[in-house]
Simulated scan of single mutants.
Amino acid sequence: MDLSQIKMVVTDMDGTLLNSSHQASNRFFNLFRELQKRDIHFVAASGRQYKSILDKLDPIKDNITVIAENGGFAIQNNTQLVFTPLPNQRKKEIINLLEGVNNIYPVLCGLDNAYIKGDSPIFEKKLKEFYSNYELLDNLNDYPGEILKIAIYNFESSEKHIYPKVYHLEQDLQVKISGQHWIDISSKNANKGYALKKVMEHNNIQPHELLVFGDYNNDLEMLALADYSFAMENAHPNVLKAANYTTRSNDDFGVELILEKLVESQKLKS
Rank of each mutant, 00 (worst) to 15 (best):
D2H: 12
D2E: 09
S4I: 04
V10P: 02
D14I: 13
G15I: 02
T16V: 00
S21P: 03
H22K: 08
A24Y: 04
F29M: 11
R38P: 02
D39H: 14
I40W: 03
S52M: 00
L57T: 03
G72Q: 01
I75L: 08
Q76C: 05
L81D: 08
T84D: 01
R90Q: 03
K92P: 01
I95E: 15
V107R: 04
L111H: 13
N113D: 10
P121Y: 11
E129V: 07
F130Y: 11
F130N: 07
F130Q: 06
S132A: 14
N133H: 12
E135I: 09
D142I: 07
A151L: 10
Y153H: 13
K160G: 01
H161N: 12
L173M: 11
Q174P: 02
H181Y: 10
H181N: 13
I183L: 15
N191C: 04
K192A: 09
H202P: 08
H208I: 05
E209I: 12
D215H: 08
Y216F: 13
L220A: 13
M222L: 06
F230H: 05
F230A: 10
A231V: 10
E233G: 05
H236N: 14
L240Q: 08
F253C: 08
F253P: 00
L257R: 14
L257I: 15
L257S: 12
L257H: 15
E260D: 11
E264P: 04
L268M: 12
